[in-house]
Design a protein around this nucleic acid. Structure first.
Lengths: 281, 281
DNA sequence: ATCCAATTGAAACGAAAGTTACAGAAGACA
DNA sequence: TGTCTTCTGTAACTTTCGTTTCAATTGGAT
């Protein structure tokens, strides 16, 4: 495929001063050049439309449209990203970000299976969904519930104050789904809960940190997310990313099926306060 | 800032069948919609230019140009690096991950300043820290508080049930710190809260989504995080990553100062031993 | 069956985007 | 100095884009 950046490098010496200025600008904005038109380009580079037009001609394109098409194809077909460069004295911040990047890449590997499609389907079909998360997993559970409730009814956050999970889960059936967020520090009794669910034959999506050893409990779906950081505090970035991903997947699944009731979404957004927070000032 | 995905959510039910088809396509291609024009859109959705034109009118834009400008502004708020680009058949999952990657890169650009060091120092020195977050920001606030409380005392989560933020914040001083998580849909009265804090001269760390326009309120520190995803549901991955980053930074700051007790860190690392919080089964 | 409202695409229109012709400016060279 | 070349923006142009008008079609409702 022809690459405009390559063309520019090749021809750069032959270009006139103004053209060089434009070419540099292009190299600096390769990623969203496809969204510019020649008028904007000329304004940004403080030159005329004519110069822009001539430049692309010089670079071997017959017109601007061809450039656009090339860029879009380029955009869509995998420019490898330059990884975060790290020297030995990289700051904590840099190292944190590098670590997050690494975690994301691992998720990418995990997400290749049909697992997510399968889960999405069940999240749509389930009569009820229970989202369960203790301690550090609780904020994630809360968030997941906040998102899911916007696209389907009957999404419960467990346990509710004053009740035990066992009680609330007792009447769950194979037509329901339980999402169990189980990152670190699972309280005593957790295994009992797993067993109960298994006995009831409730499909369980179990999400934990890596190396949790929870795979043995044979949940219907199992996601092990890397939470590693440079130091003692884990990062819950990936769990939140998965929440967003699952929500978006479910939304699109429902859209495809014509089943999404989007009109409700904003109402809920605006009026419903799912949490008992006092919003007054 | 107006977001086309939000507009679509709001109006979706009012749309005609063809318009719904187009709207779905848009949600599926939010990330590179800016590179399409109405002719291409109409071809992709197998409809006419006229329908496209009418749809955007219905979504509250006065013309297509306005849509483009909106989308470009969204896109351009990032660093000039070619993100991970995928071919057109890339799955939603792949595109989600690519988008997260891009957001991380943007955070990398934000984090170059001395801002974080400054914040860390104050988080250490503060008499009290209040963490405030409503709606979708609440889980993040909860999590931040959970982490910070492990390395320093007097970290409050506001508002507490039955009280108003104003009341609880009334006695805050310049020696305290308020962390205000303010992602999207800030409730009425939010500005009043900001002003109160300003009047009391309390240092505020304000964290919001990009393009929130909250910079005008002149908080002491201001972080704008990209939450963009491929579709309607935002990703709170970056906020959670920042929580982890801040926690780790503070931990290391205290370690450097000999102020963190080693046994605390061991506690942090130890994922099995538990104090029992009253979460029943 | 008839009417009415809603939906949609074809076509016409005006408004831009993009190309080309042209002319002025600047520099090189004799 | 005069001439030639190159570079560049202006303006005229052609093409494409986006909106609007209008008529055909559909699906209810009476």
């Amino acid at each position: 495929m022809r690459r405009i950046s390559a063309q520019i490098r090749q021809e750069y010496d032959q270009l006139s001063p103004t053209e060089k200025r434009v070419a540099s600008f292009i190299l600096d904005h390769l990623d969203d050049l496809a969204t510019y038109n020649s008028v904007e380009l000329s304004r940004q580079c403080d030159t005329s439309k004519a110069t822009i037009s001539r430049l692309f001609r010089r670079l071997g394109y017959s017109n601007f449209k061809e450039v656009r098409e090339d860029l879009r194809r380029l955009r869509q077909s995998g420019v490898p990203l330059p990884g975060p460069k790290l020297n030995s004295e990289a700051s904590l911040v840099d190292r944190h970000l590098a670590s997050e990047m690494k975690n994301l890449k691992r998720l990418q590997a995990l997400a290749q299976t049909s697992l997510l499609a399968d889960i999405t389907e069940q999240l749509d079909a389930a009569n009820r969904i229970a989202v369960i998360g203790f301690r550090n997993s609780y904020p994630v559970a809360l968030h997941l519930r906040q998102q899911l409730i916007q696209i389907r009814p009957a999404v419960l956050l467990l346990p509710q104050p004053g009740q035990t999970v066992s009680e609330e889960v007792a009447d769950f059936t194979p037509q329901d789904v339980v999402v169990l967020l189980a990152f670190h520090r699972r309280p005593a009794g957790f295994n009992a809960l797993l067993k109960t669910l298994q006995k009831l034959n409730v499909p369980v999506l179990l999400i934990s940190e890596e190396q949790s050893g929870l795979g043995k409990s044979k949940p219907k779906w199992f996601l092990e997310l890397p939470l590693d950081t440079i130091s003692a505090f884990d990062s819950y970035a990936l769990p939140m990313s998965v929440v967003s991903l699952l929500s978006n997947l479910l939304l699109h699944y429902q859209l495809d099926k014509g089943r999404a009731r989007i009109e409700k979404i904003n109402q809920l957004y605006d009026s419903t306060e799912e949490l008992d927070i006092n919003l007054s000032y």
